[in-house]
């Protein structure tokens, strides 16, 4: 069976394009009804197919992309306020509230914990590598990476 003969492959392609559009333009004021229109769907049909493919509604998906991007930006040490606006939220309090609800910790705590982990990895990398791999790589013998 060739791919083009799969039922409704053209619909899949439109939904995938809409998803990829959200991946790229998450920081913009995205009108999800407009996306459905561009994909030549009714909003209802588009939402149903999107959910069957990605396991969540387009709105939920867009939120998850924004939160994932926020995590990335916090990890590179941007301020919470900058991150909030860069990923498309309009207010720091609503961003922080949603971030905490989804991630389980506030943006600033998330950022602090990430920085602490980065520091721990930089200072004692062997604590994060199974010994068998480190040994095979010859890293155990390197006293720079071990306690005296």
């Amino acid at each position: 069976m060739s791919l083009v003969s799969y039922p409704k492959i053209y619909l899949y392609r439109r939904v995938v394009q809409a998803k990829m559009f959200m991946d790229e333009h998450y920081h913009e004021d995205i009108n999800l009804s407009g996306i459905a229109d561009e994909a030549f769907f009714s909003k209802f049909h588009f939402t149903r197919l999107f959910k069957s493919i990605y396991g969540r509604t387009p709105h939920q998906y867009l939120t998850s992309v924004r939160i994932d991007q926020a995590k990335h930006l916090l990890q590179i040490n941007k301020s919470v306020a900058d991150v909030c606006y860069e990923v498309g939220f309009g207010s720091v309090s609503s961003f922080s509230g949603l971030f905490s609800k989804i991630v389980g910790q506030s943006p600033s705590v998330f950022q602090l914990k990430h920085q602490q982990r980065l520091q721990a990895v930089a200072e004692m990398p062997l604590n994060f590598i199974p010994n068998c791999f480190a040994e095979k790589k010859g890293w155990i013998k390197n006293s720079n990476f071990q306690d005296a």
Partner: peptide, 12 residues
């Protein structure tokens, strides 16, 4: 998950 510099040219 982990990106650690392990010395010149080496990375975990």
């Amino acid at each position: 998950h982990t990106d650690a510099a392990m010395g010149p040219g080496m990375r975990w």
